[in-house]
Amino acid sequence: MDASSTETFVAHRNLLFTVAYGMLGSAADAEDVLQETWLRWAGVDAERVADRRAYLVRITTRQALNRLRALKRRREAYVGQWLPEPVLTAPDVADDVELAESVSMAMLVVLERLAPTERAVFVLREVFDVGYGEIAAAVGKSPAAVRQIAHRARRHVAARRPLRAVSAAENRAAVESFRRALETGDPQELLDVLAPDVVLLSDGGGVKQAAPEPVVGADRLIAFYRGGLEGALTCEPATVNGGPALLVRLDGELDGVMAVRVEDGRVAGLYYVRNPAKLRHVAGGTPLALRSA
């Protein structure tokens, strides 16, 4: 492989990782897909490729789609609720509203409900604005079929996605109030900051305690929290998947990552990942991008 081909891959790497992560919801699997993409790109005569970005996105999509089909079968046997692997992101990701929404825990949970090809088409079209012809080549469908799949996927996502974006100031205020309430354990403080119909999704992977089904309602959530977290609890604000989150520690050890969704100034959704296998990407910032460098 010549230097030009290497430079091309490096220039598009963050974009390709974000494509794979959006399709898979797993940073570890996205990295594996990038490695597979690199190996295939190394065998290509890049001088004969008219649009290198499109070609790399096509390779990445095909590899991610193959992996997603295999992951779907494994996730059906997953112990308890499955949540995406959280990634610690730089604050500037949160500043890019389009990018932050596309990789948010809430959006990735919604995308998990789509069939593999629907998810691939939605991510490429709605998130990265890839043309129908390019998507058709990537997923092995006709452009007409891709248009129908995109329409169906948009309808499914629109019915489940969060209603509106929340300002950074509103997020900070609600998350800070929630952090204080968690650390003090005061039930009234928690009731004050939680929406009455708040929903908690938790993922322990069969290794740590987690609710097997969504916990709905402030009272039920408080009861679950008080019965499931033992030890001296501290919370550190962080930006995870482009949105507000808390790194939760028990007796000084990282217990999990809790992504927070805020609506109308109160906490409306919590995504608590306790599975140790999914906490490897919260030690350092993960580069995500909707466009190439």
Rank of each mutant, 00 (worst) to 15 (best):
M1R: 12
S4Q: 14
S5W: 02
T6S: 11
Y21N: 04
L24A: 01
G25H: 01
G25K: 00
D29V: 05
E31W: 13
V33H: 01
W41A: 03
W41K: 06
G43C: 05
R48M: 13
V49P: 03
A50L: 13
R52F: 04
R52C: 05
R53F: 03
L56V: 05
V57I: 13
I59R: 04
I59A: 02
T60V: 01
T61Y: 05
N66G: 12
R67W: 00
R73D: 10
R73M: 11
R74I: 00
Y78Q: 06
Q81Y: 08
W82E: 14
L88Q: 06
E98I: 12
E101T: 11
V103L: 13
V103S: 06
M105H: 14
V110F: 06
L114Q: 03
A115T: 05
P116G: 07
R119G: 10
A120E: 06
L124C: 12
R125I: 02
I135P: 02
I135H: 09
V139S: 06
G140C: 07
V146R: 12
R147V: 11
A153K: 08
A153T: 05
A153D: 01
A159N: 03
V166W: 05
R172C: 04
A173M: 07
A173H: 03
A174F: 03
A181S: 12
A181V: 11
A181G: 09
T184P: 02
G185A: 07
L190K: 02
L194I: 12
L200I: 12
V207L: 15
Q209N: 14
A211Q: 13
P212N: 15
L221N: 06
L221R: 05
F224T: 03
R226S: 13
R226F: 04
G228P: 04
G228Q: 14
C235G: 11
E236S: 14
P237E: 14
T239N: 08
G243Q: 10
A245K: 06
R249T: 12
D251S: 04
D251K: 03
G252I: 02
G256C: 09
A259F: 05
V262W: 11
V262Y: 11
V262T: 06
G265F: 14
R266A: 06
K278G: 06
T286R: 12
L290D: 07
L290I: 12
R291T: 15
A293R: 15
